[in-house]
């Protein structure tokens, strides 16, 4: 599987209240919620800049804070299928996997990506290629069990293919 798109870059300790502020959690649909993604940091129209295939990268402890899965689902709703960070909060990591987002945890790769760089990620080859800068790096793949859930698109779909859900 290959993913290619633009990079959107964030710093350390980006919490779930920043990804989707509390006050929007009551909005009835994910699409409405997703319009407010990263609003405290990037203002009101950030979601319009995201296209399918784009990649979000962050520093340490990405997604810390609450267990609100809407944070991850809003990212999915914007078409983002892959996130790269130096490290993740446990809940956010788990929620990404369960919603079909591929997760790359790497101390060095976020540092070789800048805002709006064009990137191509080859998941089978475990390779991130920064088209803009020409730099390529290898990453540690997810375990087979977790990758199967990601490939199913969702934990529930994963179960469906195996059980009578």
């Amino acid at each position: 599987m290959k993913i290619s798109g633009k990079v959107f870059k964030f710093g350390n300790n980006i919490d779930t209240d920043i990804i989707i502020p509390t006050k929007y959690l009551v909005l009835p649909s994910l699409d409405e919620m997703a319009r407010h993604i990263f609003e405290p940091l990037r203002g009101e129209n950030f979601s319009a800049q995201l296209s399918p295939g784009d990649v979000i990268t962050a520093g340490k402890n990405f997604g810390c804070g609450s267990s609100r899965e809407q944070a991850v689902q809003c990212i999915t709703a914007c078409g983002v299928k892959l996130v790269i960070a130096e490290s993740f909060s446990r809940l956010f990591f788990r929620n990404c996997i369960n919603n079909g987002i591929y997760v790359i945890q790497s101390p060095s790769i976020p540092g070789m990506l800048s805002e709006r760089d064009q990137v191509e990620i080859d998941i089978n080859a475990c390779e991130v290629k920064n088209i803009t800068s020409g730099i390529t790096a290898k990453f540690e793949p997810l375990s087979d069990f977790l990758y199967e859930i990601v490939q199913s698109g969702n934990l529930i779909d994963y179960f469906k293919t195996r059980k009578s859900w």
Partner: peptide, 28 residues
Amino acid sequence: ADSHTTTAGAYGAFGSGFGSTDIVAALH
């Protein structure tokens, strides 16, 4: 489905938070 579920540990129990998809799967 809430991060502060760790509270349970004060009774020597295992408590941990999970997301909504995990909760749906666990309900089932």
